Simulated assay, not measured.
Amino acid sequence: MTDRPKVHVGKVVTAARASAQVKDVFNALSQIVDATRECIHIHEVESSRRARIQAYEATEVARIRAAEAVLKDYFTQAFAERRNLYEEMFVRLDRALEEENGEVLHAVVRGIVDIAKSSPLADMGDLSQIRAALDDPDQVWEF
């Protein structure tokens, strides 16, 4: 009995093929790193945009509130003046009726009608221009 050498059956991996696999792994890792960098950059850019939008929103809301306060004050004053004026006119109307003074009665009634015809908003100007300005996204409001 002679000992015969054993034959091994298997696959021999060449050095070139192993380096190709390492290259593929490195490329995949590089793609992941690049994609992560791009994602972080986009996140930073969008965060900055959101911050600018939030600052713009806060500024515009403050401007609207300031305009609202001015408008409320205007209406309070304008209608307070009208209320006082009407009260005075009706006191004069009552006095003219008591005195049976037709000439004063006519003048007072005419005054009441004239005041009723006018509106505190008429003094503000053309409201259609205000509406157009409100609809214009590029309108700059200054107070």
Rank of each mutant, 00 (worst) to 15 (best):
H106W: 06
V113L: 08
F26E: 14
E99Q: 06
A62T: 12
R82I: 09
E103C: 03
R52W: 08
S48L: 09
E98R: 05
R49F: 07
T76G: 10
A35E: 05
R83L: 06
A58C: 09
K23V: 15
H43L: 10
A51P: 00
A15Y: 10
E44S: 09
V109N: 00
A80Y: 04
I32P: 01
S19Y: 08
K23A: 15
R63D: 03
A122P: 01
N27G: 07
V91Q: 07
A69K: 10
P120R: 03
V70H: 09
L127D: 03
E81V: 08
E68M: 09
A96T: 01
P137Q: 01
L71M: 11
A122K: 13
L97E: 13
N27M: 07
S48P: 01
E142P: 03
R50W: 01
V61L: 14
T2G: 07
A133P: 00
T59D: 02
D3S: 13
H106M: 06
S118F: 02
E44Q: 14
D123N: 14
Q139I: 06
V45H: 00
P5R: 11
V108Y: 00
R131H: 10
E46N: 13
V33H: 14
D94A: 12
R131I: 13
H43K: 09
I130S: 08
E99R: 11
V9W: 11
I53T: 11
M89I: 05
R17Q: 14
R92D: 00
A28V: 07
R110Q: 09
S47G: 03
E68F: 12
E44N: 14
D24A: 15
E99W: 02
A133Q: 05
N84A: 03
A132V: 01
Y86N: 03
E142Y: 09
R63C: 08
M1Q: 12
I115A: 13
D3N: 15
T14N: 11
C39H: 12
D24C: 05
S118G: 08
V70K: 10
I40C: 02
K6W: 05
V22R: 13
R82S: 10
V25G: 06
I115C: 13
V113A: 07
R110T: 10
V22I: 15
S119A: 08
A15F: 12
A18I: 14
A116C: 08
T2W: 06
A16T: 08
C39S: 15
W141M: 02
A15P: 05
A132M: 08
D94P: 02
